[in-house]
Design a protein around this nucleic acid. Sequence first.
DNA 1: GCCAACGTTGGC
DNA 2: GCCAACGTTGGC
Length: 196
Amino acid sequence: MPAKKLAAKKAAPKKTAAKKAPQSKPYEQGAWARVYTRAAGERRYWLLKSEADVFSYDDLVAAPKHTTCWDSVRNTGARNFLRDGMKKGDLCFYYHSNAEPSAIVGICEVVKEGYPDDTAFDKSHPYYDADSVPDTPTWFMVDVRAVSKLKRGVTLPELKARIDLANMALLKVGRLSIVPVTEAEWDIVLAMSEEH
DNA sequence: GCCAACGTTGGC
DNA sequence: GCCAACGTTGGC
């Protein structure tokens, strides 16, 4: 599913009683612990997935100020990255999923850090979530701005063929719509986009 | 269109 | 708290 801007594919999940919004952070001891700590001023890297026919990199470039809110994420792992991991100035690869071929096509920058995703408060929105209320929001988003399009897209098969990218989160955890990227991985992919 | 991976839900 | 059923992502 697109991390974002889903037109109206499915009905909002029906919830009954109001549960407390989960705000615990067990992941800080988990596999992703490293992405939540950083040295002062350190820049971190991420990868955002979007289906090209839902919201492509060109759509981002065409948006006002080349900026959009990355809304509609409804997965707790991705939410944790949005709420607690991503900081202003971090850079993100823009990945077109479900494409032929799927590929990393551009770079964007976090320009606003995690804040409540108000699509979850909107009863008419396909991703409305009754459990998420303004006082204790469950879901978060960031704002990202287009930085540059890669000279050429770097496709999923190319990424998978690289031994030095074998541990890339994109390749190891398929379904997460937002994944961390290490600095080494970032540099490798950028170099690949410069080839040919 | 199929299905692997995996998160969420709900019965017990 | 276990776990089966179900839903979603996204590659193939």
